[in-house]
Design a protein around this nucleic acid. Structure first.
Lengths: 159, 159
DNA sequence: TTGCTAGAAGATATACTATAACATATCAAG
DNA sequence: CTTGATATGTTATAGTATATCTTCTAGCAA
């Protein structure tokens, strides 16, 4: 994991994810429209969280939308379909890096460079589940977000 | 845990918490001013998250502040001193129910009645820690928030 | 063909959340 | 008494999000 914090073939990484998304939407019978595709692409281009208004700015440049709802609608669509996640802590969004499978994501957010890595928190959920069911609480969704410093940034700070 | 979802002697519960907070502040050499005290009291009166502007409204009624910064400053103080927590998911705040000890809180948020229960997520942190350190990521703070339905609300819905 | 329907996008307005920046007050230490 | 630290007052504005109504488009049915 944490490929997000390392160098990799990013163009390929983006292209793959877009193709996968396309497929996923076709299978689900939902429309992967140009705006939605472009928004996902925008998110994929960075491994960090972008605010809705950042996304909107880029949409404007492409003539794909000009008002907040355009961005929010596309982002909501992506989140609902598991193609992106909302980072509560930042009021921002990242592309999902685990493919559109059902999972409980956990995020590592670098306070220095703002990169966001997605990791899966199986055990974390288990522990919480237990505690919740004891209380008779039925969980429908879990958010796990950690702030800190990623390796590259720490190295740089130490250097 | 989950006392939040059950009936209990609430006045006592509030009084105890306020007394504890008073102590904690005295020990820490920080000022537990009237506004701060009142804000904590407001949060304690409900076992649910209140937005900064909800808090502000009540402060206004008491003549303890009239502008947003008044509420935000007090809330920031409480959070910084471990007397309250911010619920990212709701852009809102709850009083801490675990005393001002250092802990990684996890929250169970009822989508129906908006009650918020605080539970401690030892294991959740452990799992995440491991995954993070593998990536060389140094965690400074973790947010764990679950949405769902609390027992009373589910019973009511089922009834 | 026409018209219906549903989902998507456009457009306007506004609500909600949060902070910047500067001014004032209070109090204790030097 | 002045200085510095902390808290609060005040004004203005930045940033995030959604409600609502309209228009468009594609697919389908009469």
């Amino acid at each position: 994991m944490a490929r997000e914090f390392e160098h990799h073939d990013h163009e390929l990484c983006v292209a793959d994810a877009l193709a996968a998304a396309e497929n996923h939407c076709a299978n689900g019978g939902v429309q992967f429209t140009p705006v939605r595709r472009r928004v996902l692409e925008i998110l994929l281009e960075e491994h960090r969280a972008l605010g809705a208004y950042d996304v909107l700015d880029r949409l404007k440049e492409d003539g794909l939308g000009s008002q907040p709802p355009a961005a929010y609608r596309a982002l909501d669509f992506l989140v609902k379909n598991g193609l992106a996640h909302r980072i509560e802590r930042l009021n921002a969004f990242v592309a999902c890096t685990h493919g559109p499978t059902d999972h409980v994501p956990a995020f590592l957010i670098c306070e220095t460079c703002n990169a966001v890595a997605e990791t899966v928190s199986q055990t974390a959920l288990g522990a919480l589940d237990e505690s919740a069911s004891k209380a008779g609480f039925e969980i429908s969704q879990v958010v796990v977000e950690a702030r800190g410093i990623c390796a590259p940034c720490r190295d740089e700070a130490g250097a």
